[in-house]
Amino acid sequence: MNHHLVVRVVSKLLIPFILLFGLYVQFHGDFGPGGGFQAGVIFAAALILYALVFGLDNARKVAPDSAVRVGMATGVLLFGFTGVASLLGGGNYLDYSALSQNPLGGQHLGILLVELGVGITVCSVMIAIFFSFAGRNHRLDKLEE
């Protein structure tokens, strides 16, 4: 896609806004529509756009494979350990009221952490899936050459 100047410029302009919108959806999910699942997908979509326009190798530099794999696990662990933290706080598993002195504050903190975990996992999984599909294509092209 190196010769598509318009596509390159427009996507360069768009990607920061997509990322910003992803963050907004992630952290504003309590008050409006949104949450971890959507934010993860939007974030991944921004990176996929980058990979489509600027090439897979450049995108791999932005999000290295190892970082993506660590991200996949980190999200699930963050979710799980939020539950463990509320156990340690004296409540049931995933009972966020025990996370803080004030039950409402605890609920808020818990929901935020859990949504963050969901977002990280979904985003990393989507990127990993896309990279493995696109990466295979890339290599087969090379093999044919």
Binding site: D30, P33, V76, L104, Q107, H108, V125
Partner: peptide, 30 residues
């Protein structure tokens, strides 16, 4: 929960276990 978006409240708090399971499924598929 002091969260106005009920969908988020149910998703993350009341049905946290469900969501944990779903995230595990996504992780496993990845």
């Amino acid at each position: 929960t002091s969260v106005p978006n009920i969908v988020t409240a149910v998703l993350a708090s009341y049905r946290g276990f469900d969501t944990l399971g779903e995230v595990c499924v996504v992780f496993t598929a990845g």
